[in-house]
Design a protein around this nucleic acid. Structure first.
Lengths: 196, 196, 196, 196
DNA sequence: TATGAATGAGCGTTCATTCAT
DNA sequence: AATGAATGAACGCTCATTCAT
C-alpha cells in the first residue's frame, strides 16, 4: 500500500508542471535539469527515471500542455457549426486559459521550439488547430462565415491575432481589461464572418 | 586600391548577416559562436574584435534587424493619415519584407529574447511599433478607422495576425499565394476600419 | 562501512593538497584546472563541486596552508616572552616545516599572489605574522631583545632571512646541513637580541 | 641618416623598460603582449621583430634588469675586502636601487620565474651574487667577518633579509624611514661580522 | 620595415547524463 | 527505486603569434 502522493503518475505530473513553469520563465535552453528536479521535489536521477532525456521531457511538456489547452478549449462543446455563440464561448475559454495558465500559454508560443520538438510534438500542434480549422470550414460551407478567406488563412489570422494580444500584454505594451477582450473578440468575429 | 569587401564595416555587416541567419534557424541559445564565425567567413577570435561578447552580438543583430524592418516599412511614406491606400502600401511592404528576409522576420519574432536583450534593444522594439500605433490613433480621430478598439489593442491584433500568417506558412500549415495575401490584407483592414 | 577516503571532507583535502603541489611547482597562472583535478584523482567538473572557481580554490589553498604553518609553528607554545629557548624552538619548527612541506613553504612565498587573493586571504597573512611581531615587541620591552630595531623591521629582517635561506637552497645555490641551520639560527638570534 | 630616437637599440630599450614595468605590476602571466607594445609605443608586430617570443622578452628583461642591478651595485668599487665602509656603501646602493627602481627590484624577486627563465637567465642570477659571495669569503679569510657562517649561508641570510625588508614595505606591513634603513643595515653587518 | 587584424589552440566553466551507493 | 556526486564534452572567451598590407 503506497501513499497516494507517491504514485508514479503523480510524480510524472509534478515534474511536467515544474518543467512547464521554469521553461516558460527561463526558456528551454536557459534551464538546467537540476532546478527542474528541485522544483518538482525530486532528485536529478529520479527525474531521469521518468524521462529519458531533457529533450524527451520538453516534448512531453509540450504535448501535455497542448493537450491541456485542447481539452480546456473543446471539452463538452458541440462543434458542428461555428456560429456566434460558439465563437464567443471559444474566445472566452481561450482568454480564460491565457489568463489562468500564463506559463502554459507562453510556453506553447515560444518560437525556438523547433530545435528539440520531435515528430509527435509537431503532430500534436495540429490536434488543436485541425478541429478549429474544420469548424471554420464548416461555418463557411454553412454560409455563417465569409468565404473570402481560405480556412487555413482565416485560422492563421485569428490565432495570430489572439496570440499577439496576449504577447503584447506580457511585454508590457498593453493592459487588457474585459472591455478590450470583448471588443477584440468582436473584431475577430468580424474577420471570420464578414471578410469581403 | 582595396577590395570593398575588406573594410571593417563590411566585415561587421557580414558577421551581423551570418549571425542573423544562424540565430533565426537554430535560436540564440542553440547557436555556439564558432558556427557564426564560420558562416561569416572569419575566425572566432576575429569575431570578438567586432563584438565584445555573444550577447553584444545578439543585441546588435536585434537592433540592426529592427532598424532594417522599420526602414523597409516606413521610408518615404506620408504617415499623416492611415487611409486605405497607405494601409495597402504598408501591408505590401510588410509582406515583401517577410518574404524576402524570412530570417530577419523570424528572428525578430523569437520569443526568448528577453534573457539577453539590453535596454537599447528593448527601446528599439518601440521605434517600429510606436509610429504604427500613432497612425492608428490618428486614423481613428480622423474618422477613417473604427473607434471601437483602443489603438494598442488594434495594433496588437493586426501585428499578431500578420505574424501568425507567416508563422503558419513557415511551420508548413499553409502556402501563401498572392490572393491569400490580398484577402488577408482586406480582412485586416476591415478589423481596423469597421470593428463594431 | 565506508572507506575513509570517500568522505567529502577528504576529497576537499585531496584537492587542496593536489592544488598546493602544482601551484607551488608551476605557479598559479601557469597551472590550468584539468591538471589540478587529475592530480587530485577527480574530474574537472567534480572539482567545481567543491570550489566555485579557480580563484576560490587558490584562496582556499592559501588560507589552508597559512593556517597549517601557523598551527605547526605556534601550537602548544607559551608565547609570553621570546627568550632563547623559545626562539630556538620556533626556528626548529620553521625549519621542520620548510623541510617537510617544501611545496607549502614555497607556495606561501610566491610573489604574484596579489592578483587573486581576496580579503580573507590577506587577513590570514597577518594571523601568522602578528603573534610573532608581538612576541618580538614583548621581548624588547622585557629587555631580552635589543630595542634598536622597531619590531616590524626586526620581524621583516628575520622572516626575510629565513625565507632567503630556503629559497637559496631550492634554487640550488646552497645545500643546507644541520650545522648550517644551527649557525643561521644563532646569527638570526643575534640580530634580534644584540642589534646595536 | 636616421633620427636618434628611431635607433633599433633605442626601441629595444623602450620595449625592455615597458615590459619591466607591466611585468612588475601585473605579473608575467597576467600581462598580454599588446599592452607591452602599447606601453613601448610600438605595434605588436614590431615587438616581435625585436624579440622572438614573449618568453624571450621576459628572459631579456630579466637579464637586463639583473645586469642593471649589478652595475648599479658594483660599479667603481674596490671589491678586495668587505670592510665596514664598503658594506655601508653596498647597502646604500642597494637601498637606492630598491627605492628608485621599485619595478626592477620587485620584478627580480618574483618567484614564479622558473617556468620561463632559460639557462642564460639562471646564469645571470649568479653574476650578481657570486662577487658578493666572494667578497664575504675574502672578508672571512681576512678576519674582518665572522667565520661561523659559510659564505653561501651568510649571503643567503643577508640577501633574504634585505629583500624581506622591502617586500614588507611593498605589502604595507611597514613604512621604512632612513633610521630604519640605517638600523637594519647595522643589524645585517653584525650578522656578517660577529656571528658567533 | 612596420602595422594591427586575423588566427586557433587553450583557458575557466557549465551542465546533460550516469552510476555507485 | 531513489539519490546526488561525478563525469567530460562543449561552451564563451583570451591571447601568443602570424602575415597580408
Amino acid at each position: 500500500m503506497t501513499t497516494p502522493s507517491a504514485t508514479p503518475d503523480d510524480k510524472r505530473q509534478r515534474i511536467l508542471a515544474a518543467a512547464l513553469t521554469v521553461f516558460a520563465r527561463q526558456g528551454v535552453h536557459g534551464t538546467p535539469v537540476p532546478p527542474i528536479a528541485a522544483a518538482a521535489g525530486i532528485s536529478v536521477g529520479g527525474l531521469y527515471r521518468y524521462f529519458a532525456s531533457k529533450e524527451a521531457l520538453v516534448n512531453a511538456v509540450f504535448q501535455d500542455t497542448k493537450q491541456a489547452l485542447a481539452t480546456h478549449l473543446l471539452t463538452d462543446l458541440n462543434l458542428t457549426t461555428l456560429d456566434r455563440p460558439l465563437f464567443n464561448k471559444l474566445w472566452c475559454r481561450l482568454a480564460d486559459f491565457a489568463r489562468h495558465h500564463p506559463d502554459a500559454f507562453r510556453f506553447l508560443e515560444l518560437q525556438d521550439h523547433h530545435s528539440y520538438l520531435d515528430t509527435n510534438s509537431r503532430l500534436s500542434e495540429w490536434q488543436l488547430l485541425m478541429p478549429l480549422r474544420q469548424l471554420i470550414e464548416q461555418g463557411q460551407q454553412a454560409g455563417v462565415l465569409s468565404q473570402h478567406l481560405r480556412p487555413e488563412v482565416a485560422m492563421a489570422l485569428f490565432w495570430g491575432a489572439f496570440v499577439g494580444l496576449f504577447k503584447a500584454q506580457r511585454l508590457g505594451y498593453l493592459e487588457l481589461d474585459s472591455d478590450d477582450l470583448r471588443q477584440a473578440r468582436d473584431a475577430c468575429w468580424q474577420v471570420l464572418s464578414h471578410a469581403s
